[in-house]
Lab assay of single mutants.
Amino acid sequence: DMPHRFKVHNYMSPTFCDHCGSLLWGLVKQGLKCEDCGMNVHHKCREKVANLCGI
């Protein structure tokens, strides 16, 4: 059981939050991507995600 390793990410195409399902808005640093499993989340959704990475 490992925690997610979220890192700020710049998305080049429209991407949706894997937690709430809404679009990650903006041009740069729109959200966070787990370096291990690739989960994408809003900055505000980070604390709502279970801290178990499903690598």
Rank of each mutant, 00 (worst) to 15 (best):
D1C: 03
D1Q: 02
D1E: 08
M2R: 04
M2V: 03
M2Q: 04
M2L: 09
P3E: 15
P3I: 15
P3M: 15
H4Q: 04
H4T: 03
H4N: 05
H4E: 04
R5F: 14
R5S: 15
F6D: 02
F6A: 04
F6K: 03
F6I: 12
K7R: 07
V8Q: 05
V8I: 11
H9S: 15
N10I: 01
N10M: 04
N10H: 06
Y11F: 14
Y11Q: 03
Y11V: 03
M12R: 10
M12I: 13
S13A: 08
S13T: 07
S13N: 10
P14A: 08
P14C: 06
P14H: 04
P14Y: 05
T15V: 05
T15W: 05
T15L: 04
F16L: 06
F16V: 05
C17Y: 00
C17P: 01
C17K: 00
C17N: 00
C17V: 01
D18P: 01
D18A: 09
D18Y: 11
D18F: 07
H19Y: 09
H19D: 13
C20Q: 00
C20N: 01
G21S: 14
G21M: 09
G21N: 14
S22R: 13
S22G: 11
S22D: 05
L23I: 12
L23C: 06
L23W: 09
L24N: 03
L24Q: 12
W25K: 04
W25P: 04
W25Y: 04
G26V: 02
L27E: 03
L27W: 07
L27S: 03
L27G: 03
V28W: 05
V28G: 06
V28T: 09
Q30T: 01
Q30N: 02
Q30V: 02
Q30L: 01
Q30S: 01
G31Y: 01
L32T: 10
L32F: 08
L32K: 09
L32M: 13
K33G: 13
K33N: 14
K33W: 12
C34V: 00
C34H: 00
D36G: 09
D36M: 06
D36W: 05
C37N: 01
C37E: 01
C37T: 04
G38A: 11
M39P: 00
M39S: 09
M39W: 13
M39L: 10
M39G: 12
N40T: 11
V41D: 00
V41H: 02
V41S: 10
H42N: 05
H42W: 02
H43I: 06
H43R: 09
H43Q: 13
K44R: 13
K44L: 07
C45A: 01
C45L: 00
C45V: 00
C45I: 00
C45T: 01
R46L: 09
R46M: 10
E47P: 13
K48R: 12
K48P: 10
V49P: 09
V49I: 11
A50C: 10
A50D: 13
A50I: 09
N51L: 13
N51T: 02
N51C: 06
L52K: 14
L52Q: 08
L52S: 15
L52A: 08
C53E: 13
C53K: 13
C53D: 15
G54S: 09
I55A: 10
I55W: 07
I55S: 14
I55T: 14
